[in-house]
Design a protein around this nucleic acid. Structure first.
Lengths: 323, 323
DNA sequence: CTGAAAGCGCTTACAG
DNA sequence: CTGAAAGCGCTTACAG
């Protein structure tokens, strides 16, 4: 707080209006006065308060980011991308993480109260959707980062998830696998699973079952005709699969191939060498933030769909030879 | 933005002042009026603007967090702890990450401009320190999270780093190791290294060399009398050590024991089973945020030093038998 | 070229 | 019990 426009004006013996104009380098104020005021401002270490400015301008230059648990690597990368692009654009980033729905609603209320100019959202529960829609209808720009909304008012940056699932399955089919399974289904994983189905159907291979839990997977692996390859919803799930398989005495990729999703940092470690479908996480954050900035500046923006990429490492191989 | 106090006042046919008081449940306004106003506010979905409120109250209820790259797991956990404790206290969290020093200074300026009530800082370069000190001197509360400041104006929450290094070394000495080394020295790792020295000195064992780089470690391992155990600055560095050792044909822990630091999530995976010195990362974030809240409310706070804890897993064992 | 005024959305004395 | 006024720190027409 400390030194304000008013104080500065007094010290410079001009009116607050003149100071304001001078600091904005407005040609309407004499060059000499301008320089004098600017110099004094620097000397007194004057920082204009966003509070006054925002109130008057009716924009806060604040953006809210509603993310899942920031502890997971996936959101971190997105967050970093957002921070990196918002900051040079002059925006501050309010970060909130949503536990349950009530929590998410509270965070959204906080964003409103803080008068954010826009919101980026990465993870929301259905109940949040209605609330978010109300916000967009009242004119608040919202964009989704790695989160598709059925609603066109919420443009988003996402990868082509079905295509990602398809790529994973195709990689395995090309290696000769004929019995796939998909690990750890949840509503949000459907698009990737659908992609797998597309690939298996095209190749005339049996529809991969969708295991809901680790136990279900274990049971499936102990079946007389177990799958020879797994498509996992994420790299973390792929680790789970690996560990479940190993606990049954199966080796990866000799006895079972596993494809992950995301390409988190650890996937490349020698201990894992995980074949995976890479998402450009940081880029997603950057693009979403960039879109939001454009919208906040009054521009029109359209959703972007990014292409995933398969990274082949050593968790996949040809299926074991049938005896 | 949308509906304001003024509008609300008009619709309720009372003065703005009355609305303000009513919404704060002030007994000075008649119970009937109070209820009526509150109901209307709810019906119109009125959210008081923090901008007006903050300007008047001279506090923004905003806190800035200056962290390192949020991509690293260590800071995430701290961030999560901060978010979780600040939010219920009614504060919004501005997150900025610092790349180089110029960047950090810019972020600090942004915090000032946004009128944050306080700052939490996890990672700063020397140049930032002077700037931060200026801020504290002007009355802005600042606390360090996992970052010690030589300055008493900046209370902090840190673990006892020398003790952590000591615990790591003691664990190895107890297993019978007599030739230790410390991996990947940098100024910031000194306290932990000092702790190692304390332990080795007490046990009358040779002072562990401090390897600056992976190459230095490799050279050391190819020496006729190589170390049998390594204390690593962090779990990530421990992975580096493991990989360097493995590339020389050494197995962990048979040929070389390794102790990490932090206990990041992956340390517990079966692939690593990393013995490590655990830091209560989330707790550090929570405590730092709690301290800041207290300070912002005018309370006095003192630095807190947390105790690390050694987690014994399978990356350490007795030294190989000497032939 | 510069200043006085009004106003952004709120709150808090002060009258009445 | 309620309202008119002043002010938080800024900006933007409008006078002069």
């Amino acid at each position: 707080m400390s030194v304000t426009l008013k104080i500065l004006a007094k010290k410079a013996s001009v009116s607050p209006a003149t100071v304001s104009l001078a600091l904005h380098d407005d040609p309407r104020v004499a060059a000499a006065t301008r320089k004098r005021v600017q110099k004094l401002a620097r000397r007194l270490d004057y920082v204009p308060s966003n509070l006054g400015r925002a109130l008057q301008a009716k924009r806060s230059r604040l953006v809210g980011y509603l993310s899942g648990n920031v502890t997971a690597s996936f959101y971190n990368d997105i967050l970093q991308g957002i921070v990196d692009t918002l900051s040079p654009a002059g925006y501050g980033l309010l970060v909130a993480t949503v536990g349950d729905e009530a929590d998410g609603l509270r965070q959204l209320a906080m964003f409103r109260e803080k008068c954010v100019d826009g919101i980026i959202i990465s993870d929301y529960k259905p109940a949040l959707l209605t609330e978010v829609l109300k916000l967009t209808e009242s004119g608040l720009p919202v964009v989704g980062a790695s989160m598709e909304s059925p609603h066109s008012d919420i443009p988003s940056v996402v990868i082509d998830n079905p295509r990602g699932g398809e790529m994973a399955a195709e990689h395995l089919l090309a290696l000769g696998h004929e019995r796939l399974a998909y690990c750890f289904g949840s509503r949000s994983s459907q698009p990737r699973y659908q992609g797998c189905l597309r690939a298996t159907a095209r190749h005339g291979v049996a529809e991969p079952p969708l295991c809901a839990t680790r136990d279900a997977l274990r049971r499936l692996l102990e079946t007389p005709q177990p799958p020879t390859a797994i498509v996992a919803f994420s790299d973390l799930h792929a680790l789970d699969v690996k560990h479940a398989a190993e606990s049954l005495g199966l080796a990866i990729p000799r006895d079972l191939s596993v494809v992950g999703f995301d390409d988190l940092w650890f996937a490349a470690l020698p201990e894992f060498q995980l074949t995976t479908v890479r998402q450009p996480k940081r880029r997603i954050g950057e693009l979403a933030a960039g879109m939001l900035v454009n919208r906040m500046r009054g521009g029109a923006v359209a959703s972007q769909k990014l292409q995933p990429e398969i990274i082949t490492r050593n968790s996949t191989a040809a299926p074991p030879i049938r005896e």
